[in-house]
Design a protein around this nucleic acid. Sequence first.
RNA 1: GGAGAUGUCGCAUAGUCCGGUCGAGUGCGCCUCACUGCUAAUGAGGUAAGGGGUAAAACCCUUCGGAGGUUCAAAUCCUCUCAUCUCCGCCA
Length: 423
Amino acid sequence: MIDLAEIRQNPDAIKRSQEARGESTTLVDEVLAADVIRRTAVGQFEAVRAEQKSLGALVAKSQGAEKEDLLSKTKVLAEQVKSTEAAVREADTKLDQLVLGLSNVVDEAAPVGGEDDYTVLREVGVKRDFAKEGITVRDHVEIGELIGAIDIERGAKVSGSRFYYLTGPGALLEFALVQLAMTKAQTHGFTPMIPPALVKPAAMEGTGFLGQAAENVYRLEADDLYLVGTAEVPLAAYHMDEILESKSLPLRYVGFSPCYRREAGSHGKDTRGIFRVHWFDKVEMFSFCPVTEAKAEHERLLAFEEEFMQALEIPYRVIDVATGDLGSSAARKFDCEAWVPSQERYREVTSTSNCTTFQSRRLRIRAKSNEGIEPIATLNGTLCAITRTIVALFENHQQADGSVRVPAALQPFLGGATHFNLK
RNA sequence: GGAGAUGUCGCAUAGUCCGGUCGAGUGCGCCUCACUGCUAAUGAGGUAAGGGGUAAAACCCUUCGGAGGUUCAAAUCCUCUCAUCUCCGCCA
């Protein structure tokens, strides 16, 4: 949620941001108009209400005819209080609705444009020359079958398309990846968390997933709960409605959770394998930090992501995501894209967003110091999205026969195994 | 799933039966000042959030788990709902 005061003071800045995102600028004017209406309504209500209260005090003290007289007056007032209060409520709802429709103000540094207008910040690692090695590249589906790690057919049989089973070494690999991620995160000061993957509307709404992203969210109508698409949701909402101690910041959490995504509007995209699925598990970093620290914290989260990719010895590049592709909550976003040999291109495996105060305002999370109460920033970043990491790992470390080399960092978590062998 | 109890200002609690001077008392914690060589102890004062308003104040409004209702007036009465606890049943 954008700060209303900010919109009043600097509507043009908000408009520029909306423009850069390719979203409505007239919405800003609508907000301003609704704000005026609301303030007028509030003024009227408060005036009547104040009179009602002061007369009410007199009623309590008076008796007899005097009391009767007062009561007749207050009865009229009561009607006015009711009607003006209703007007306030209506104006409030309208304003809220409009303000919630505004996306976060983009960071000036973010490249302006659509999905393809990202900036490549760097490429890291060495892509293998499979031809030179005399290896015909297999994709992760083939490799997964050869080593008995992924069973897509049965996933489809049991749950439908875009579902899978991780089997044998695949299942063990997930645990190893999670362990490695959790271990690393702890050394960086993150508190490990296993959050609920089913949340109330308030948590979903507060994190900004019921806006444009709503069609990708699974909703359990019978219980009015949502399946989260990322641990970001329960981690952000963890401190919902709280006032934190400024000196306790940054508060860093690393959560492991399943992620559920409807993938509406992705029909026909990445239909093969486990690159794009309705459910996967993920280790996610989340940070509540002072506004002034947010940019530096964002760099740190990115660095942790890169460190993880490097530990897995996966070649990748980092992109600065363009304004039109940020999603409503992020002011700036960096994606780490792993090299996928079977597709001969980079594909997103992790992503880190600086949501500035957008989420914390919606979730009513603030911080208190001697200087008073101030808003805080929230940031999130993927440490390890299991399925996509497996794709990158299998394909980049495949051997001529279809077996897969295990990078050194993972070996301790796989009983020292150096390879996933053919089944 | 059944029966019962509870939800008040950071924490603990008073107030709820018998509606009005209760946005709300007390203790602890915290902050400021005084006293003291320092700490402790003691004394005085302060100590919710949000909104409106103002140059800044003053001041006003909202919020007693949440949502409705009754009433001139609701922490207090009614309805629904959520959470927690206890007992019973069931279950990994």
